[in-house]
Simulated scan of single mutants.
Amino acid sequence: MFHVPSHRRYIRWMRILVALLAVGTLIALAGCGGDDKPAYCSDRSSLESSVKELANITRNTGLSGLRAQLGEVESDATALVDSAKSDFPEQTSAIRSSVDTLAGAVRSLQANPSAQQAATVATDAAAVVGYVSDFTSASSSECD
């Protein structure tokens, strides 16, 4: 019915099985390492995308659209700052500060903002774009 292998055969099969498992483990570990990028690389991509979407805000999307997109920018900026602040303290501090400034300007907007208020928001948004670009340049060796 059931054949019990000899002791030598059993030992040989066990060695083969252990060797196969070791090779499989090494292949799996090689696939996980080496080319992995830091977490802040994907956070950087998310922030870049959400900042670019600010440019798509139109009169039709209005103030509510701007505030909604600002929420995305704030969330993505927080994720980036949290993941990269130890490696890029100056750049992440500048991003955090500029996003906070933009958020304050947007939150102070009324239903019909003045030209001065709109100009302030545009200037603050440009600062965010600049600091995100600075971070992108600083992190390019790790992320690109």
Rank of each mutant, 00 (worst) to 15 (best):
T120K: 14
A122E: 01
S97E: 14
Y40Q: 11
K85Q: 10
S64N: 11
F2P: 02
A127Y: 00
T101P: 00
L80A: 07
D134P: 02
A127F: 03
D35N: 13
E74T: 13
S49I: 00
I27R: 00
Y131I: 10
Q116S: 08
I11K: 02
S140P: 01
T78D: 14
V106T: 06
T123Y: 09
S83L: 07
G65L: 04
G34R: 04
D36I: 00
A125L: 09
C143I: 13
V51C: 10
A111D: 05
G71S: 15
L63K: 12
K52T: 13
L17C: 10
K37V: 09
A77P: 03
A94V: 06
D43Q: 08
L66Q: 14
V51P: 01
E142Q: 15
S42C: 04
S108D: 10
R107F: 09
C32S: 06
T123I: 11
N56K: 14
L54P: 06
L29Q: 10
S75A: 15
S139R: 05
D36H: 02
T136N: 12
Y10A: 13
R107Q: 14
N60T: 13
P89F: 05
S42H: 10
S93V: 05
P38F: 07
K85E: 09
V129F: 00
R107H: 13
G34F: 07
S133V: 01
A122V: 06
T92E: 08
I27A: 15
H3F: 01
A22L: 15
D82N: 15
A118M: 13
A39S: 12
S137G: 06
F135T: 02
S64A: 10
A115V: 05
V18C: 03
T92F: 15
R44T: 10
E74V: 11
V18F: 02
K85P: 09
V121T: 07
S75L: 04
A105K: 13
Q110S: 13
A68K: 15
D76E: 15
